[in-house]
Design a protein around this nucleic acid. Structure first.
Lengths: 275, 275
DNA sequence: CTAGCTCAGTTGGTTAGAGCAGCTGACTCT
DNA sequence: AGAGTCAGCTGCTCTAACCAACTGAGCTAG
């Protein structure tokens, strides 16, 4: 008589306490309490009592919230309000892009175009409006980049990211900066995972300097052109080493929106199950 | 002697089988199998056998993947590769914005600025390049919008969203379209949740028509101006009913990165726990 | 013979209790 | 006083049962 699965509850709650609802209630806890990032959440037993759900359900809800970055869990320490960074978005985007790429889509190129659209749209409103302090920082970053390029290219990617991050800091919009960095990171992650050809360090350095010069001079058209040139460079290196022809996409479809049930494997069905 | 917690495993696997690793392995299953959206995944028992983990752990991993949109779970039916839509991003972004707003940040305004930056950056490359078919569709949408505005405004938001979606369809980049829609939805969700003043239907319709006219005429500068005007309108309605001054942000910090442990409540600690 | 219903069997959802593992702070021994 | 130990929190994993949603085969009524 161990796990009997009965429902001794506080009465008054619907018995079908969907997991979805648990998530919402925990989120409500955070919003209503105006809890800032890092604030402690109730322990699992406390949440069980408060939400009237079992340990397992509470944990599944927390796991989902953790995956969304809303909650942070530390083993042996406690549960806390998450940093709400866009890291989960990066992960989701990266996976989506990798999966799409492996299925023959040009998902990585689309991601690059997304970045290009955003940055070209933003650079014009920066031209000539950056304080000297930021310009000096960008100068230093380009210098470091050139130094790293000469010495084998170690840490070049990190400097590249720092450059783009510093560039758009002047917009005074934290969300904007985070989204840009998220897209950068997703792109970078996927490209390295896929073993794509890295950029030519020298060319890249030059383009970064061009961007900086244009922004400093205040010529917004030239700045936009410089950004576009930079992305064009990356794009060319991206589309070059692609073996599969672009016509061979969209295979293995077979009415994907009405999937068959388990136990009735389709053409490609359940061939993992046993492995 | 019911739950003994022993570890009868296939031997060869590390015993510390972190939940994180389970997620990675399931993701690998999808990528390596080149499974398209909607393809069936192994059942929970099958995953238990394949991954050598308990039902509970498998389910927690699946829950996390579900939260990221990588996996779709249907009660009584099976588990499938998710649509990889950006819906989870919408949810995360919306929550982040709501939470920020309740803490006194201008997060909603930042979200609006993000949309504005993206759309202004994109509209110029659309001007004069949309096929007649798309222009006709946009015409129809504006007409419907005007009709809805006259009849109380039911369904106006949906038409608004359709307009923006149709506008950027010509870019031939599915990701871009989805991101734009995701931002639109996050913004709309938060604004309605927060009970912000809705826009004036008449003005909004006029602005949409201005945008369409500018795009049709091919005048990219005018198109950009029209978009900016549109967002300016929304922005003004947003910042109007805000009681708190913008200087009073960044309170209640108190070193949020080294949170105290449970049982030692800080200034605002664990006041949910008992409720 | 067909339309509809019922029921067995599949799938995921939830609960329960026990033991495992990481971390901290107080207590104890040197 | 300093260092090691241990009790006690915390979250993590496992097992085992039952609950609920859904499908499809088979039966029944028309």
């Amino acid at each position: 008589m161990s796990g009997r699965g009965g429902r001794a509850r506080l009465a008054g709650y619907p018995l079908a306490m969907a997991a979805r609802e648990l998530q919402e209630r925990i989120k409500k806890l955070i919003v209503d309490g105006r809890l800032p990032s890092g604030a402690p959440l109730p322990t699992e037993p406390a949440l069980m009592a408060h939400l009237g759900a079992s340990r397992n359900s509470v944990r599944e809800a927390l796991k989902a919230l953790q995956a969304m970055g809303i909650v942070e869990i530390r083993h042996g320490f406690g549960t806390y309000v998450g940093a709400m960074s866009l890291a989960p978005m990066v992960e989701g985007l990266a996976f989506r892009t990798v999966a799409g790429h492996h299925r023959g889509e040009d998902s990585l190129l689309q991601l690059l175009e997304l970045r290009e659209a955003l940055e070209t749209g933003l650079i014009s409103r920066l031209a000539g409006k950056l304080p000297d302090r930021d310009l000096d920082e960008l100068d230093a970053l380009v210098a470091r980049m050139e130094r790293q390029a000469a010495h084998g290219g170690d840490g070049l990617a990190e400097t590249d990211r720092a450059f783009h991050a510093a560039l758009y800091r002047g917009l005074d919009n934290a969300l904007l900066g985070e989204v840009l960095e998220a897209f950068w990171e997703a792109f970078h992650t996927v490209r390295t995972d896929l073993g794509g050809a890295p950029q030519d360090p020298e060319t890249t350095c030059g383009q970064h300097r061009d961007i900086l010069d244009a922004v400093r001079s205040g010529d917004s058209l030239q700045a936009e052109a410089a950004i576009r040139e930079h992305f064009g460079n990356i794009r060319s290196r991206l589309s070059a080493p692609r073996p599969r022809s672009s016509q061979e996409r969209h295979r293995e479809q077979e009415d994907p929106r009405t999937p068959r049930r388990h136990g009735e494997p389709g053409p490609q069905g359940r061939h993992h199950e046993r492995v």
